[in-house]
């Protein structure tokens, strides 16, 4: 590898292995009504919550035997989002670590999700964390209680309508600063000083500069 040839951040082989676990799992899950989507080499399958446990069992039998994570996203303030509010993502992969699938279930406020603890006992703490942080109830979970937050904290912190709870900075001479007004950065729905919404506008692509010849950067 020469110094000038800078490697890109590697994306896993998108070409799904013929006859491999991912291909079998995708076929089986499509039969159950899953919709496939792909982004930068990552494959996701969106399913109905009624067939989730069957889908996860089928994926496990197809070879995606390891559960990594149970992630949850609250799309309340996502610009341009029209679907249900929550999504629960089961991040599963096979024993070699090369084939990975994200199984997504979309839920509305108040809808429950069936638990995956019957398929992997390791989903126990992960689903409890999802319940505690996002408020998603997992039906059939043996011990669905708060995990990380204190007992007297009401609400679910990772929801978008839960405030971050910043305290203002109070100085000795009486001034106080509100942290939110000093923050850098914008959410996707904000327009910023120039009105440019950045990547949220479709068709805008980043321009790659050229690699400078001299060594070292300031």
């Amino acid at each position: 590898m020469t110094a000038a040839a800078d490697a890109a951040v590697p994306t896993p082989e998108l070409a799904v292995l013929r006859g491999g676990p991912l291909e079998r799992a995708l076929a089986r899950l499509s039969e159950l009504g899953g919709r496939t989507s792909e982004f930068k080499g990552m494959l996701s399958m969106t399913l109905d919550r009624g067939v989730l446990v069957e889908a996860l069992t089928a994926a496990k039998e197809a070879g995606l035997v390891m559960l990594t994570d149970v992630a949850t996203v609250d799309y309340l303030t996502y610009p341009g989002h029209r679907g249900k509010r929550f999504v629960v993502i089961y991040n599963i992969h096979d024993l070699t670590g090369r084939e990975r699938l994200f199984v997504r279930v979309e839920l509305d406020e108040g809808e429950t999700c069936p638990t995956a603890t019957g398929v992997w006992r390791g989903a126990d703490f992960l689903e409890r964390e999802a319940y505690d942080m996002m408020g998603i109830v997992f039906e059939g979970h043996p011990n669905l209680r708060k995990l990380l937050t204190p007992e007297d904290l009401e609400g679910h912190p990772h929801r978008k309508d839960f405030p971050i709870g910043e305290s203002p900075t109070l100085f000795n001479d009486g001034r106080f600063l509100d942290p939110a007004t000093f923050r850098a950065g914008l959410m996707g729905k904000d327009a910023g000083l120039t009105g440019w919404k950045g990547g949220a506008r479709d068709g805008v692509r980043s321009v790659q500069g050229t690699l400078p010849e001299e060594g070292g950067e300031s």
Partner: peptide, 18 residues
Amino acid sequence: GYYIVSDGGSMPYRVKVH
């Protein structure tokens, strides 16, 4: 792994750390 959800803004929309 970090599961990062971006909404086009300059701050992440959701970061889930495994």
